[in-house]
Design a protein around this nucleic acid. Structure first.
Lengths: 260, 260
DNA sequence: CGACCTTTTGATTGGCGTCAAAATCTGTGG
DNA sequence: CCACAGATTTTGACGCCAATCAAAAGGTCG
């Protein structure tokens, strides 16, 4: 466990109890693994780390030695463009697997930055490969997670290519709301219909191909129209029906068919 | 083999010879399968079909019974937007697998239209599922193909979100050129550095989030600058270096790391 | 040859970017 | 608990890239 041994990554104690076996099963990658084999899976875990907000986990074009499952917190995956701007590809939520998309020469295809404080569980690339080869349930699950991410990415492509700022923004708000609701219960306040929403307007712009200035203007209109409440890192969807129409949002696209 | 039994799909004789075993191995999905098991794999093929240009293979929101490997020809995968416009997600080339991305209720996530005459090999969804479960090489290959497609989709997102029309168009031309060169040798004329290019300017616009009018204007400039030649369904890249700069194109993104 | 694509060109419009500056929020240390 | 620096949000004026509308010219295939 070298190379993560710097100030950014803070080593946490490895929770090797039965309870941990339950815990690990909640992470999306291991959902299909039979109980008897969970312990076997765990031998491949390297360690857990905590990382503060606004830190880089890995960079595009560098060779990460580890992939991570995100245990808690939010991470932005992005690419930087030559002119200095950036495109955010995905907000990773708890359960997501990070850092296994590599080009043929082993370099990362994108960079990753923590938005909130996070807890990560590390796997060496080699062990991940072994697990995939030996446990078909994990490979199948990875295919599914990929297909879901692909569907999300395609939706974003449609937003960026074919929708105006209003529709894009509405889409992103609804998508995030749904994903949090399903994947990160801790960030979802069922009573208030609110989610924890640490995405700044600048980040929203970087996700949608808009400037933070224009994001601000459109959000203002949404608030005036009574569609959302949004401040202090909290988001409430007030009029889901109308917002969905504006966005042409369909939650089906977040829920893909299991292949196996 | 019902439900494909209409005028669009023309049944072809099923080539069950040893030669066919060699042939099938060329399709990307079966590249990792050991020779001894190729025959076993073939039992799950339904049949081969030919389909004329400009036909719909399947529609978004319908339940396709079959997935296809594309043996020859070009297919556009796209989604239609409420305002009637559409976003092309991918040009499928020979070797690509089509029609297995389904939402949880079993409906297709996108539509597919042939651009040229094509030959398809059909697999029932059920058999595809069996193959994935029983042959880990196929599952692993599918993960890889997905990761590659994901990388391509992300690049398109960056193009649509962050690049101007010049860069987007340059990118699409280079990407298509590279993909054809690698994946569809029949469409690549090595001597002339030319590819068969059946993508109309309207299709280009639908891929890039531009209008056909603007695509035309930018292409005109590219021709005047001596960057490309492009007419009569043929494309020649005259100045790859300069075009790559304009596009910020990196062929690495088309070449992802094998996970297993 | 005729119908239908596809490409090409011109004039006009508008959504969103750019630049700049003020106001507000957030976290940190004294 | 306040002060202060840095991040984030907010607002206004102005400009430009690409959309829109319209129509002509060129290709293609039955």
């Amino acid at each position: 466990m070298h190379s993560l041994n710097n100030s950014v990554f803070n080593l946490l104690p490895k929770p090797y109890t039965d309870c941990a076996a339950c815990e690990i099963r909640k992470t999306a990658l291991f959902q299909g693994v039979p109980y008897g084999r969970l312990g076997w899976t765990q031998q491949y875990r390297e360690a857990q780390f905590s990382v503060a907000a606004r830190n880089q986990l890995y960079f595009e074009n560098m060779r990460p030695e580890f992939a991570f499952t995100l245990v808690s917190g939010w991470v932005a995956l992005y690419k930087t463009i030559a002119d200095g701007s950036r495109q955010i590809l995905k907000y990773a939520l708890p359960g997501d697997l990070l850092g296994f998309n590599l080009t043929r020469d082993g370099t990362a295809t994108h960079s990753a930055e923590t938005i909130t404080p996070v807890i990560l569980c590390a796997f060496s690339s080699k062990n991940l490969s072994i697990m995939l080869r030996e446990q078909p349930e994990i490979a199948a699950r990875l295919v599914e997670m990929n297909l879901r991410d692909m569907s999300i990415c395609q939706q974003h492509l449609i937003c960026a290519g074919r929708k105006d700022a209003r529709a894009r923004l509405a889409y992103m708000l609804l998508e995030t709301y749904y994903r949090v609701q399903k994947q990160s219960k801790a960030d979802f306040d069922e009573k208030a219909k609110a989610i924890f929403f640490p995405i700044t307007q600048e980040l929203l712009g970087d996700s949608l191909g808009l400037t933070n200035v224009h994001v601000n203007r459109v959000l203002k209109v949404f608030k005036m129209e009574g569609l959302i409440e949004c401040s202090h890192r909290r988001l409430i969807i007030l009029d889901e029906k109308r917002l969905s129409e504006i966005a042409q949002f369909n939650s089906q696209t977040l829920d893909i068919h299991p292949l196996v």
